[in-house]
């Protein structure tokens, strides 16, 4: 760990201004950032602690019938909130499928969205990694890439986003409310937060320097059953091989509408318009669900060790849809 300065922000404006400086980073729960600092993957000069900002840990109902979640709400607090459990069980399930109790007690909503990939080559500073050291190459591309992405990535970086929470939020059409250092407030759909790696995988989001995620807005809950399914090597405290968030509504023997998002397949939670189109009005059968998976994964590409993710994602989607609509 390199020496760094630490400031506790006493207001949003001051926090954004301080964090806009080169080498500055926000810190909230620190469950990812501090690990990365210990390994010198992240070497900030200044940490701006936003843990005590007013209203950061409040969950409130919105006029339109949704929820506004403060970015500082802990993962444990969000998963346990009665409104979340009743209206957005998908979100609660996804959060509880991630990390461990101890980590969830500390990790925050904003931090979860901005956590870095767990690609082993990103974590090992002796290895090439375009995300950590731009221009050094991607060691995962021809390496041991079992946990890496199969969708939407580039030969410069095949890292996967590790969040469970963000997958559920993507299926729920969450928007992020941010504050810029100049005080400007904007709303960003969660799907637009993450930037495709292209040839600049070190730039991961559309956030400007010092731009702070203040809250996450959930629109009113969608119709249909919500099911989150995480597939992992061990039963707890493991990153997903594949995860699937489904919201599906059944009408007779047909699917009226469905939402589908995958985790661990891409640099971001992967919402599949193709699967959703395929499911709309389709018969509620395993055959239809398989067809949705095939449509979703049409452009997927394995890199060797992670080839299995493609059939696994299709099978997991099929099972999760069957569960959601009761087949």
């Amino acid at each position: 760990m390199k020496p760094f300065r630490y400031e506790r922000a006493n207001g949003v404006a001051a926090a954004c201004a301080a964090a806009a400086a080169p080498g500055a980073r926000f810190i909230a729960g620190g469950t990812n950032l501090i690990d990365l600092m210990k390994l010198q993957i992240e070497t900030p000069e200044l940490l701006v602690d936003i843990g005590l900002l007013p209203l950061a840990d409040i969950i409130e109902s919105t006029a339109e019938g949704g929820l506004r979640i403060g970015a500082g709400v802990t993962n444990s607090g969000l998963a346990a909130d009665m409104r979340v459990r009743r209206l957005y069980p998908l979100l609660s399930q996804a959060i509880l499928a991630g990390a461990s109790t101890q980590l969830r007690n500390k990790a925050t909503t904003g931090g979860n969205l901005l956590q870095r990939t767990r690609c082993p080559y990103f974590y090992d500073t002796t290895k090439p990694c375009n995300k950590r050291a731009p221009g050094s190459g991607c060691a995962a591309l021809h390496g041991i890439n079992r946990m890496n992405a199969v969708m939407g990535v580039s030969d410069d970086c095949i890292a996967a986003h590790p969040s469970d929470m963000a997958v559920a939020m993507t299926a729920l059409d969450a928007r992020l409310e941010t504050v810029a250092p100049d005080g400007a407030i904007r709303a960003i759909p969660i799907d637009a937060l993450y930037r495709a790696p292209g040839n600049t995988p070190h730039i991961e989001t559309v956030l400007a320097p010092g731009e702070l995620i203040r809250s996450v807005l959930l629109p009113p809950p969608p119709q249909g059953r919500q099911v989150y399914r995480k597939v992992r090597d061990r039963a707890s405290f493991a990153f997903a091989l594949v995860s699937v968030a489904v919201v599906a509504e059944r009408e007779g023997d047909r699917v009226r509408a469905a939402r589908v998002a995958f985790g661990s397949l891409s640099y971001k939670p992967w919402r599949s318009a193709e699967a959703e189109a395929s499911l709309e009005g389709a018969s509620a059968t395993r055959t239809s669900f398989d067809a949705a998976g095939i449509a979703a994964l049409k452009n997927a590409r394995g890199y060797g060790h992670n080839d299995f993710k493609i059939p696994l994602a299709r099978r997991t989607l099929r099972a999760t849809l069957a569960d959601a609509v009761g087949v």
Binding site: P120, I144, A235
Partner: peptide, 22 residues
Amino acid sequence: DSRFGSFINQDLANYHVAVNAD
């Protein structure tokens, strides 16, 4: 990883030992 001669798993998040739930 034979290109580098190093173990790829270097922490307990990725080297999986059984946890209680297993």
